[in-house]
Amino acid sequence: MTLPDGVERRSIAGETGLATRGQPVYGEPTEDGWRRWNPNRSKLGAMLETGMQTGLSGGETVLYLGAASGTTVSHVADFAGPTYAVEFAPRPMRDLLTVATDRSRLFPLLNDAREPTAYAHVVEPVDVIVQDVATRGQARVALENRRFLDDGRLLLAIKARSEDVTRQPENVFDDVLEELREGYEVLETASLEPYHDDHLGVVARPD
């Protein structure tokens, strides 16, 4: 498994796991300036942990959709370049703002990821889109934001229960992937278990 520069497996507090270098954010264990990246709390962390080929090498420009409180975004901003973080709910945004204070290349945007025209005047074309939104229409969000990718990668975590709790996750994943193929070539998919139930990790590139 290749990890991006700036992400390492390190032994922290007696346990070995993913870590990045930066200011601690959510009470994670730290050692020598490195802080644990807990895959149970981060879909992207789980994608790296399960060995998916994310294509990340470090230093990329990133558009992060569904930044929430900034748990994952904080790690991304530690190893990536300029990082645009879109989150629509005010309360998690407050936590995200705290994360952004210590990270000068993290740009928080209180916007709806389904309406990219409201932030396309701020966000430049990026190398990577990371998407973790808990709404229905996750494929639609990815397609709407395809305009920010020339080539590069979409790293998507599909949450089956956000689309439809009553159906089998596998069927939901199939539908989302089929819709996603309208604008992307899917390179790899993998279940994010045991870190996240009913989630599918997807690596795709614009088609």
Binding site: P82, L109, T117, A118, A120, H121, V122, V123, E124, P125, R147, F148
Partner: peptide
Amino acid sequence: AIRDGSATEPREWP
């Protein structure tokens, strides 16, 4: 400008 602006396509803003 950040809150009220919009654009259909992103460009190399920096």
